[in-house]
């Protein structure tokens, strides 16, 4: 190494480049990557391992590992009624929000992709929820769901239907939260799907029109297959997003009533930052991580076969 450092570029016919020179590119690249690597290490990789580590311990108030308990935290989770409820609520929530959200966004995007006068206005409106924060949207929906002054119950009253306790009835709360979540995520899904639609080669439709294919036939045989990478992407993102839902719960229901909306991230938050049970909270975080990981892998395995890349 020392020799290599002082090696001047020689003029022989076959110069063996020195190690220092060989690694020059790698060293330059490392400098460019350094900020990212540093930040990822401190705020993603280290915490990920720390989370796994903490999940085997009971912790003190400072969040330091105090007592090794092995798999006890996981055992507790498995037997915990409340965790079962949380998992069930999370899965149901994913089921409520993801398919519905994507179908509605696809519907809106198909309409907004037509070449009509003033279509830009509708595109802006449909994507608008992307600019709205979870806090703002939840506060607005909180009012819409309000038992007495809320919009929904007023409409029900108008038709003479009995009022519903949208957020206070355990049978309705998760549904209500889901509705507000679908609405909030529509903007992003819409924007992505519209972008995907606009990437489809116009010639495909022209050739289909010459063949006399109907709108529905084109939709089934051209649009959906060509859109499949986009749909694949947005399904993955939506799934991961819905597993990470927090803000709506915190403002709308606080996990209640009777834990019917205690989604996993909220459950982690409660255990860690309200009850200071960092150990069990970490165990739940590991479960969340595994869920998202499995989902992503599953998605890619299934998606590979079904998706038509151009």
């Amino acid at each position: 190494m020392k020799l290599a450092l002082h090696d001047t570029p020689n003029l022989s016919l076959n110069p063996k480049t020195s190690l220092w020179k060989q690694t020059q590119k790698a060293r330059v690249a490392f400098l460019y990557l350094l900020p990212s690597i540093l930040l990822f290490s401190v705020f993603i990789f280290y915490p990920m391992f720390k989370t796994i580590y903490l999940s085997f311990f009971l912790t003190d108030q400072q969040g330091e590992a105090a007592l090794f308990v092995g798999l006890d935290n996981y055992q507790d989770l498995l037997t915990s009624q409340s965790f079962h409820k949380s998992i069930k609520a999370t899965l149901l929530f994913v089921l409520y929000t993801v398919p519905a959200g994507i179908i509605i966004a696809l519907f809106l995007a198909l309409m907004a992709n037509e070449k009509l006068r003033g279509i830009g206005f509708f595109r802006v409106i449909y994507s608008s929820t992307m600019g709205i924060s979870v806090a703002a949207s939840s506060v607005v929906w909180l009012f819409l769901f309000h038992p007495s002054t809320g919009m929904f119950n007023r409409v029900l009253n108008l038709f003479g239907i009995a009022e519903i306790q949208w957020l206070l009835d355990p049978d309705w709360a998760l549904f209500s939260v889901s509705v507000s979540t679908i609405w909030l995520n529509l903007g992003f899904s819409f924007l992505i799907i519209l972008g995907g639609l606009q990437n489809i080669d116009e010639h495909l439709y022209e050739s289909a029109r010459i063949d006399g294919a109907s709108y529905w036939y084109q939709l089934r045989r051209i649009t959906i297959p060509m859109l499949s990478p986009t749909l694949f992407f947005i399904i993955t993102i939506s799934l991961i997003n819905s597993f990470q839902t927090f803000g709506q719960i915190d403002i709308l229901t606080k996990g209640g009533p009777s834990e019917s909306t205690n989604l996993i991230v909220y459950s982690i938050y409660k255990d860690a930052f309200i009850n200071y049970q960092f150990g069990t909270a970490s165990a739940q975080a590991v479960v969340l991580f595994i869920c998202v990981l499995l989902l992503t892998i599953l998605q890619f395995k299934l998606g590979e076969k079904k998706v038509h890349y151009q």
Binding site: K25, A26, V28, A29, L33, S36, I37, F40, V42, F43, I44, F45, Y46, P47, M48, K50, T51, L54, Q62, G63, I240, F243, Q244, F246, V265, I268, A272, F273, F278, A281, S282, A285, V286, L288, F289, V292, L293, T296
Partner: peptide, 29 residues
């Protein structure tokens, strides 16, 4: 550079770590 694909894969894999799963140690940090 050597290892470019590996580091890129490492970067992409962070997308699969939900941020909420790491918030406790981050909070402590």
């Amino acid at each position: 550079f050597k290892g470019r694909n590996f580091i890129f894969f490492l970067f992409i894999s962070t997308m699969m770590i939900p941020w909420e799963a790491t918030m406790i140690p981050n909070f402590i940090t």
